[in-house]
Design a protein around this nucleic acid. Structure first.
Length: 256
DNA sequence: ATGGTTGCTTAGCAA
């Protein structure tokens, strides 16, 4: 099974690009983030025409997550469902081929000391509770998405420069680590240990051309899935050309 | 280089 995650930065702006990419890569399951549209405006027919079913949690203008799958999507569930009054569409889950797949879009956090940063840190705590309440480390589970945190120094092109950023600050990394502590492994790092591999580059200042990026998009898997991870790739080609997303897709091959 | 760019929505916010 080929499992992918991609922050598309508006599915309507990226519809043709996503469609061409589905044709090229033929992933079995794709977790999308930052749809930036309500469910009624999602290009469902185009995706279905490529052979994919859709599970999605939409939201106008901001956020929005989906799971596309060529295999049946079962037990679809949206949101953290922890009773907090939270309209932000940042999580959708479905079971595909016996794997519980989560498409997650963690809050960016804006800046250190902001309300949004506090929300970001709390969101990770809530996500850990979500996992604790529903699964065990032996559940075949893949938490995929834009988690808006680079876990380690080798995941940032200039760790010192990014230390005061919400994407690499110690507290954000600790918050992600708390989620990983549930019993997750970084599928990408199981297969690729070299530095300089990123999934996001700022649109500005030619960051992509200079490879000044961060690895903030992740596929985190429990141990039974980790044993099956066979390949890992960041598709930099998808970040090139006219009007790309600012993120590149991550693709993980999972053997039967 | 506290700039730069893109998308949504309609000048300003979010990323």
């Amino acid at each position: 099974m080929l499992l992918a995650t991609w922050n598309v930065n508006s599915i309507r702006a990226r519809e043709e690009r996503v469609r061409a990419w589905l044709r090229e890569k033929r992933p079995d399951v794709v977790c999308l983030q930052e749809l930036k549209c309500e469910e009624s405006r999602f290009p469902r027919a185009a995706v279905e025409a490529e052979g994919y079913g859709v599970a999605l949690a939409g939201q106008r203008t901001y956020n929005g997550v989906a799971i596309l799958s060529r295999l049946p999507l079962e037990d679809v569930s949206a949101g953290l469902q922890d009773g907090e009054d939270d309209m932000q569409a940042r999580l959708v889950a479905a079971t595909v081929g016996g794997i519980r797949v989560l498409s997650a879009y963690a809050p960016n956090g804006e800046s250190l000391g902001s309300e949004k940063y506090q929300y970001k840190l709390r969101w990770f705590t809530r996500l850990r509770r979500y996992l604790d309440a529903r699964f065990t480390p032996q559940t075949p589970l893949a938490l995929c998405g834009d988690l808006n945190v680079a876990p380690e120094p080798r995941d940032a092109h200039d760790p010192e420069r990014w230390a005061s950023s919400v994407l690499f600050h110690d507290d954000a990394r600790a918050a992600l680590k708390q989620v990983v502590g549930f019993g997750l492994l970084d599928a990408f790092r199981l297969k690729r240990d070299e530095p300089g591999l990123y999934t996001w580059w700022d649109y500005r200042a030619g960051a992509f051309h200079k490879n000044q990026g961060l690895r903030i998009d992740h596929v985190l898997v429990t141990e039974p899935l980790a044993r099956r991870c066979a390949s890992a790739e960041i598709d930099r080609e998808a970040r090139k050309g006219e009007l790309p997303s600012d993120h590149a897709p991550v693709l993980i091959g999972i053997s039967p």
